[in-house]
């Protein structure tokens, strides 16, 4: 094969993107604690990881927060997307859209700080919600991921053919029925993608969670972050490998599902 510059550039680019991750996976199977010496293949670090109760408890907390916040965020985000794309102008629509998109450019530190100040103020007045551990993290993550979900669902709604919905409305279906029977199945890939992205963002967030976490609520990234401050640790290699595998499998399953769905639609036509 002839040498081509573009292939060489792509090779270098993907090497830069993937080499660090491959290193993590390889060294998670190294028996030695040190990167300098490869002693032999072992699953030791996976064992120590899975017998660490602090990490396991944090993982469960993170999963709960991520599932709950992604689900609420998808429901709210779909509502917002419908309001933006399907509703005529109403008073305050520009402010509404601006407030929805603003969290996308807010630095995490500022968002965490401002939400914490709100929660402290609310605690003083209502005696809620700082006391209840993960509630504050969930609320913060919903607010953070809402804008991302909205962007994804709204882009899909924008591309959709509106005539089907209009036809159903003309034939006397209620708006709710039109949404559940016609719109929802057509935007389902975007909703699933939005859920996955919200889940990934939530399970990944360390800054906002550190600010707003109530007493006793520790998420997985918070533990990983504090252990990274002390440098390399092989348990984190193992944890990273597990997380990468799970998330990549999730994304690939999603991609295959969308591909099948789309080819079905195409062949149906």
């Amino acid at each position: 094969m002839r040498f081509r510059w573009s292939n060489f550039i792509l090779f270098l680019g993907y090497l830069f993107l993937y080499f660090p991750l491959v290193c993590i996976v390889i060294y998670s199977f190294n028996e030695s604690r040190f990167v300098a010496s490869w002693t032999r293949f072992s699953l030791k670090w996976y064992k120590t990881l899975l017998s660490n109760p602090i990490i396991l408890r944090a993982a469960v907390t993170s999963l709960k927060v991520a599932c709950l916040s992604a689900t609420v965020s998808v429901v709210l985000g779909t509502m917002v997307a419908i309001i933006i794309t399907r509703f005529k102008r109403f008073r305050g629509k520009t402010i509404f859209v601006g407030a929805i998109t603003a969290p996308l450019v807010m630095p995490e530190v500022v968002m965490g700080l401002s939400l914490l100040m709100l929660f402290v103020g609310m605690e003083k007045i209502f005696g809620w919600p700082v006391g209840s551990g993960t509630t504050t993290i969930t609320i913060a993550h919903i607010t953070l991921t809402l804008s991302y979900v909205t962007m994804i669902v709204q882009a899909r709604l924008h591309d959709l053919d509106m005539t089907l919905e209009e036809a159903a409305l003309d034939l006397g279906a209620s708006p709710l029925k039109v949404f559940f029977v016609i719109t929802l199945p057509m935007i389902s890939p975007a909703i699933v993608l939005g859920w996955l992205l919200a889940f990934a963002l939530s399970i990944d967030d360390v800054v906002i969670a550190s600010f707003v976490a109530g007493p006793g609520a520790t998420t997985l990234p918070m533990i990983v972050f504090s252990s990274l401050r002390f440098g390399i640790s092989p348990e984190i290699n193992a944890l990273a490998t597990i997380l990468m595998t799970v998330l990549s499998i999730g994304v690939i399953i999603f991609a295959v599902w969308v591909h099948r769905k789309e080819s079905k639609v195409r062949s149906g036509k």
């Binding site: 991750l21 290193c23 040190f34 300098a36 972050f225 390399i232 990273a240 997380l243 990549s248 994304v251």
Partner: peptide, 18 residues
């Protein structure tokens, strides 16, 4: 899609003194 912290950790592993 892999965790943000883990991508940073990968560079700690590459760049740190040991």
């Amino acid at each position: 899609w892999t965790s943000f912290l883990i991508r940073i950790y990968a560079w700690i592993m590459l760049l740190s003194p040991c």
